[in-house]
Design a protein around this nucleic acid. Sequence first.
DNA 1: CACGGTTGCTTTAACGTATCAGTAACGGTC
DNA 2: GACCGTTACTGATACGTTAAAGCAACCGTG
Lengths: 334, 334
Amino acid sequence: MNIQRRVTAKDVARLAGVSQSTVSYVINNATNQSISERTKIKVRQAAEELNYTPSAAARTLRKGTSDTILIILRDAQIGELTAQAIEGIVRTLEPHGYSVVYRRQREGASALELCRELMPAAVASITALTRQEAYDIQRTGVPVVSTEFEDDNGEADNSIILSQTAIGRLHISYLHSKGHQHIAFAAPDIPNVEEYYARRLAGARDECTKLGIDAPPVVDIPFNLEGAISAAQEILALTPRVTAVSAYNDEVAAILLAALLRLDVKVPADIAVIGVDNLPLSPFTYPALTTVNIYAFEVGSGMGSLILRAIRPDLDIPLPAATSSIDLIERDST
Amino acid sequence: MNIQRRVTAKDVARLAGVSQSTVSYVINNATNQSISERTKIKVRQAAEELNYTPSAAARTLRKGTSDTILIILRDAQIGELTAQAIEGIVRTLEPHGYSVVYRRQREGASALELCRELMPAAVASITALTRQEAYDIQRTGVPVVSTEFEDDNGEADNSIILSQTAIGRLHISYLHSKGHQHIAFAAPDIPNVEEYYARRLAGARDECTKLGIDAPPVVDIPFNLEGAISAAQEILALTPRVTAVSAYNDEVAAILLAALLRLDVKVPADIAVIGVDNLPLSPFTYPALTTVNIYAFEVGSGMGSLILRAIRPDLDIPLPAATSSIDLIERDST
DNA sequence: CACGGTTGCTTTAACGTATCAGTAACGGTC
DNA sequence: GACCGTTACTGATACGTTAAAGCAACCGTG
């Protein structure tokens, strides 16, 4: 198995009987350099024959920017929804010839350093960057798109808002509209979600204040059936009597439903439960789980469009429609 | 917002009062070039002060290979397990300074072309490459690691076997050991999983033949409750009477369980159900779902180790332990 | 027929790094 | 003191591309 030498534009040029720069012009369909049709065909044939593929590294070095989109993730385990968002980004950008690099924030190494190293065409942050970091990166000329910078709701210019507080608010306002006055919050017992969790809870508290009802007591739900059963009993024993539970997500909600089913508590008659995420299995819990669907794929596509707008102004990509990226799905558990 | 010029090794050299090559030697801890401690410190300080980050593109161009690991995926939607496998690869390789690029196979563009373009240090294929493609890539000097090349079970040299047929076999042998003689196969009603599906079913048939029982009849399970209920009734009406169902995955299994619960059919007394994937919600179905856990994260880590072995022989990475990457989790549904 | 303008190329100079081939200085050896 | 070996550097070059600048040939125009 001998390793073959790389085919370069020079090789193509030699075969086609032209200069190397001509090859470059033809390959890139240069608009500010006219090339005769005859030559174009010759070059393309030669390239085909030699199986020529341009070197991304050389192009990047020369142009000062690569055809790479850097996705930066926070340091939590990547799950279904993150995967879907990435998928949305990828599907939007790959048809235009961009590759997606994805990186977790290494401790110590800053996102800015990563950018200087890889020279991406753009950066997409999935709740991973601070405002300052985003600003620093943009100063190097690399556009940054992110899922959310919640603190300024006004101009979400380069941001697809996926508001965690809005999710919390939606939970409460929905449950309140169904007549519930006393609502508990079921928290996850896992690490690395503190930020999401805190913001969803903050949204819920906010809405409670607005509606003039008590702030929800918080109960941790362990990720095993026995623990969950105790937690469920704890919730049922709360005073004043709680009639609904806003769960951090569908996982928590499903565990709670499983516990309540074992305790023979009727859902939603005795207590209502609502989740977040609309996982693939959520429609098939007992009873079927009411939840907040997050259009993660669409959020990803939206980010992709924003990126394209920034790096390819010539394409005239429209601003992604500012539809809400969340949606309440009413099933049987409320 | 003015865009600043890139800081290069030359700038660092100027500040430190040495040549650019010295900077390069210091930054890379060159072993075949001795540099005095004094100089090293000077250079490092200068680099620090200027916030120097080497250009990946220039390094790649010069060295002929990048610090990038290319993950190639098949064209199905990426889900929980794929995400976990990627996570395993990333966590193994990023500490060594590699970035992970991930790409779907674009139609038309071959994986080989992608490699010539990006010059990755290695390629990891998650059931995406044919043997021929893998071979072609390896001929260019880029190591390829993949999840499975099932056709030659003997030497799984650069492959972490995640055998789909073994999953099918495990289902049947387990159910048979629990006394089931008549087993049905519940198939998913979604696109893009044909290959997995076919191989799991093939494994199941295989095992049935070996055990001398009938090949499982196949029933499609629609992804909605009403459809699933009809499908469940269809299964219950089969002759000879089926006592267990091997489901394509946990999603299918959970839908079936939901349907059976509505039909008041007792699981596992009347019929047993087993799934594949061990999704986060699977322990919380009613009854809790027996399933095959796929150690996707560990598969990913194993791939990472194989890759490291190939590209960094100096590190003396041991071969990942050849433990099975699947595992039966017995719960209440069987 | 001298002129500017266009077409269709080629020459050349970067981009930022790694590394080979020097080389100067210095210490030790016979 | 001539020689060799080592240490600690520097200079120069190549990696493969893009794109500006240069240039020859041709065409139309006055």
